[in-house]
Each structure stands twice: as structure tokens, then as C-alpha cells.
Design a protein around this nucleic acid. Structure first.
Length: 226
DNA sequence: TTAGGGTTAGAA
DNA sequence: TTCTAACCCTAA
């Protein structure tokens, strides 16, 4: 199959990391994450795929077009967008971005309880003691990918549906529904009103903007206790 | 299951 | 010492 040609709307868009691609009308309505890319399809007649990413590459766009060429049902596409059905071949642009930035006091591994997941995800030390793994409940610091997935989940389900969000987007993750709730609370504290003196997680501006919009759309926390 | 206060580790 | 992020605890 002939490789699709990538085109940009304008030099300005290229500079700000916005990629626009011509797509078929049938694919309109797509919205979500593919790897590290935040995608949205224009719903107007001016058909285009917008990729918001500060370090997106042309070959990322080619990959997405290949995805769009394959007919999928909505659930399948949702899985794709959440990363459930593919290992993202895309560049981890957020991590890359963070590597290039000064790390303002990012903390090291906390001395928390550990689990066998550590050896899988962190190449950690053996964690068996007396024939049993020490129970740990999560993975220390959240990655940018996890945060994006959480934001995507909140955009789909709203806040307060953490167990549903867990089943849909963090099914195989060690993150619990409570972890998702806590992380969303921390994100709001960090980005909603700029009340924090500093934040330890450098998120891409479009993602921060999305968090702020979601905070307005889905107010949280909801006061339960009087 | 969720909300929200409390605790803790570690960096500013 | 202060602050953030991760995690814990428990009432509803």
C-alpha cells in the first residue's frame, strides 16, 4: 500500500506541535490517546486528524493512518487508544521532555512496601522473603503515560467512577481505584488553581490544559462530609 | 466503592 | 522546616 503523505496545515502548527492529516470522513469522531499522542478528529467538513504533541514525528502520523485504515468497532478502537491492544511504538515524548528539563527535585524511589511487579517494571531487586512476596499496592511514582491514561479515563467517565475506570483502562495495572482517585486529586491540586509552589511532574501543556478543562466540567472533590 | 482526612518519604 | 506526591485509613 502506498504510504500516505503527511501534510501540515501551517508552519505555525508545526512549531506548536500540532499535526494535521487528511482523513476519511468515516473516521471522524475519534478522540483519545494513542501511545503518547493525544488525538482528536475534526467533526466538521474540514476533515483532519489533529495530533497534539510537542515532539510528535512524521512516522507517528503514518502509524496512526495505518491504524485508521483498518476497520475496527468502537470498543476495539477504544482499546487501541488506551494502549490496551498495542505496545506503543511511539516515542515517549513526555519522558523525553522530562529528561531534557531540569529535574526540580524529583524524588527517588520511596521506601514503600514492594511487590513482584517491581522486577517486571523496574528491574528491581528480588523481593521474595520466606517464600512469599511482600505485598505492595502500587508502583511509586506515576509515569506520564499513566497520567495521560487517567486523564483520558476521566474525560470518558467523569470523576467518581474509579473502579469502572480501573477496569477499563488500568485492568492489568497495579494501580487501584483508590490510587486513581488519589492521583486525580493530586493532579487537581497541582494544576487546577496553581496553588502549589511547585510540581514534581512536568506534564505537557496540552495535557495540563485538558486537566483544567476536566476539572471545570467534572468538579472534584465533591464535599461529602458537612 | 468512594470521599476525604491523615501519614510518610524525600526534595526544595 | 515546608511542601508535594504517594499511600493509608475509615466513615458513609
Amino acid at each position: 500500500m502506498e504510504q500516505p503523505e503527511i501534510s501540515f496545515c501551517s508552519p505555525e502548527m508545526e512549531q506548536t506541535g500540532l499535526f494535521w492529516l487528511p482523513v476519511e470522513e468515516a473516521e471522524q469522531g475519534l478522540d483519545g490517546l494513542l501511545g503518547d499522542l493525544q488525538l482528536s478528529l475534526a467533526s466538521s467538513t474540514a476533515c483532519g486528524l489533529q495530533m497534539e504533541n510537542y515532539r510528535a514525528r512524521d512516522d507517528d502520523a503514518v502509524l496512526i493512518l495505518k491504524l485508521l485504515e483498518e476497520p475496527r468497532d468502537e470498543a476495539d478502537l477504544d482499546e487501541w487508544l488506551s494502549g490496551g491492544l498495542h505496545e506503543s511504538p511511539l516515542q515517549d515524548t513526555v519522558s523525553h521532555h522530562q529528561m531534557e528539563c531540569r529535574r526540580s527535585g524529583r524524588r527517588g524511589t520511596r521506601k514503600r512496601r514492594t511487590s513482584p511487579w517491581d522486577t517486571l517494571f523496574f528491574g528491581g531487586i528480588p523481593l521474595r522473603r520466606a517464600g512469599k512476596y511482600i505485598t505492595r499496592k502500587n508502583n511509586s511514582h506515576w509515569t506520564a503515560k499513566e497520567v495521560k491514561l487517567l486523564v483520558h479515563g476521566v474525560s470518558k467517565f467523569g470523576v467518581g467512577r474509579w473502579s469502572k475506570l480501573k477496569k477499563k483502562y488500568f485492568k492489568t495495572s497495579v494501580r487501584t481505584a483508590v490510587n486513581l482517585k488519589d492521583k486525580w486529586r493530586n493532579l487537581l491540586r497541582a494544576y487546577q488553581k496553581n496553588i502549589q509552589k511547585y510540581t514534581l511532574l512536568d506534564l505537557e501543556p496540552p495535557l495540563v490544559e485538558q486537566i483544567r478543562k476536566l476539572a471545570v466540567k467534572h468538579p472534584y472533590p465533591k464535599r461529602r462530609h458537612s
